[in-house]
Amino acid sequence: MITEERTITINRRKSSLIYFVTNYNSLFFLILLVIVSSIISNAFFSFTNITNLLKTSVVYGIMAFGFTLCIISGSIDLSLGYNLAITAVIATIFVRDYNYIWAVIMCLIVGTLVGLVNGFFIGILGANSVIVTLGMTSVLYALGVQTSGGNMILGDVRSPFSLIGRGKIYNIPYQIFIFILLFFILNILLNKTRFGKYIYAVGGDEAISWVAGIKTGNVRLTVFIIAGFCAAVAGMIFASRNESAVISGGAYWQNQFDAVTAVVVGGGSISGGRGSLVKTLLGILILAFLRNLLNLIGISFEFQQIFKALVLIIAMLFNNLFIRGKLQSNE
């Protein structure tokens, strides 16, 4: 594992072109997808199609940002989907009973708290991230059933809260601005701050970064808090777009799957220490275009899910191939 990381850093210094080609191979796939889509359909390049396409990918895209940080630090968060659900339910309840400011504040607080609890067990107590977050899905589902009574909660259509999902400036929805803003903030955090380097270090080799004086537990904790926050923002947009929320239903697992797939397709590796938000953005776009393409061809929802899973597995194989190939060429 360590040698792998080293070869990559060496490669990075050696040649920026080779580095670019091997690292951003998803970009070529994206371009290919755009070309194919534009050949198949004339409507593809219209302004409405592109904004709609971005709009549908905002929710899982924001979750994918949080998931990227998790995966770089070497952990997995499976509770993002239900975190989205619980924050959506809480936001809708507060819109109905109080006002939109409370709704925004409360749903962000709850989402972040969920991240904090995850982070406490994973970062501070050192438990396995997959299992803890798997247990968390059950707890969150139960919490959602208790707060909503298991019924669909209807929000207030006249409330300014619905502007988050429906408002537009210059025909561009607000949610896309939120998406881009979050992307830039997290990108600066990851690339320009010391904390960002720590995340990479912890994912690359936890023992060595601990020896080097990084408080690895705190880094993990913070990563999960950020992931929880991202899920809360996604939940807020989700609630505001639908103006209602219901705890049961597959929509949450779907978003979780899409977030994971976007990150992996973008080139993030589960073994940690690799990946970036730019790559994840590419992955999100690829998934969005792919979805659009499948819809244009007229493939059913079930087949789309099977197809997406295959894409996820193939992308993982592809990532592995590239890393191993590079290792061999260096030796």
């Binding site: 997995i76 499976l78 997959v130 697992w253 799957f257 994971v260 797939t261 992996v264 589960i270 073994s271 059913s300 929802f301 079930e302 087949f303 789309q304 899910q305 099977i306 997406k308 899973a309 295959l310 996820l312 597995i313 993982m316 194989l317 592995n320």
Partner: peptide, 27 residues
């Protein structure tokens, strides 16, 4: 095969299977 021959992490490889089987069940 995914875990051994393709050397994927078992958590994420079986998550992929999870998604795929979910689709097959729906189908």
């Amino acid at each position: 095969l995914l875990v051994t021959k393709a050397r994927l992490n078992s958590f994420i490889a079986t998550l992929g299977t999870f998604i795929m089987l979910d689709g097959i069940i729906l189908l």
